[in-house]
């Protein structure tokens, strides 16, 4: 199989998951698209990379790093600032509507979590990764993953007091 075909296949397999991961960090569909696009282009230029069965983990790590770079960037801070001060009223109205949909409310609560517990929650519950896989991906001890999961769940419980969500209360 030619390199070009391999690359096409790679994109076909991994794009969706990388896009979801980028969204968990950036909370913005357009930015998530741009980040995944950058990841693939960077990967395409790294011709020295050889597949040793770690392709998925490698691409996920690249995506996470790009997302974290973005979160530290001035562009992101500017967007956050504008969001905070210019769309406050609009958000309140939207929140009221979203409350009618428990699932949307849960999504919103997850995305509002601080980054570290959010990472643990989304990888464990949404991407169905094991504690060990999360620990390897984030390069942290398994114990740390567990404590972040615990903290994430506690924060979600506070956020979602009036909702009974089986994963959180019985997981």
């Amino acid at each position: 199989m030619a390199d070009h075909e391999k690359f096409e296949q790679l994109m076909a397999i991994h794009t969706e998951q990388l896009f979801r991961i980028a969204y968990y960090y950036t909370k913005d569909l357009q930015i998530a698209e741009d980040i995944v696009q950058d990841v693939f282009i960077k990967f395409y230029h790294q011709k020295h990379y050889e597949e040793r069965g770690e392709m998925k983990a490698y691409l996920v790590r690249m995506t996470i790093n790009k997302c974290k770079d973005y979160l530290k960037s001035w562009a992101y801070r500017k967007i956050t600032f504008q969001h905070k001060f210019f769309t406050k009223q609009k958000l309140i109205l939207q929140d009221t509507l979203i409350r009618q949909d428990e699932q949307a409310l849960l999504d919103d609560a997850i995305l509002r979590l601080p980054l570290k517990p959010r990472e643990a929650i989304v990888y464990f519950y949404l991407e169905e990764m094991t504690i060990k896989e999360i620990a390897e991906l984030l390069a942290i001890p398994e114990g740390t993953v567990k404590s972040r999961l615990k903290k994430g769940k506690e924060l979600l419980k506070v956020e979602l007091q009036h909702i009974e969500w089986e994963v959180l209360f019985h997981g």
């Binding site: 794009t15 569909l29 998530a32 693939f40 949909d101 699932q103 995305l111 519950y125 949404l126």
Partner: peptide
């Protein structure tokens, strides 16, 4: 436990196509 998927991410095929198109 059923896998939970965020509503906004339930159908990402359009985004996937857009990404692949831009990369090409």
């Amino acid at each position: 436990m059923d896998k939970h998927t965020m509503q906004v991410l339930q159908d990402v095929s359009a985004h996937k196509e857009a990404i692949i198109h831009k990369v090409r």
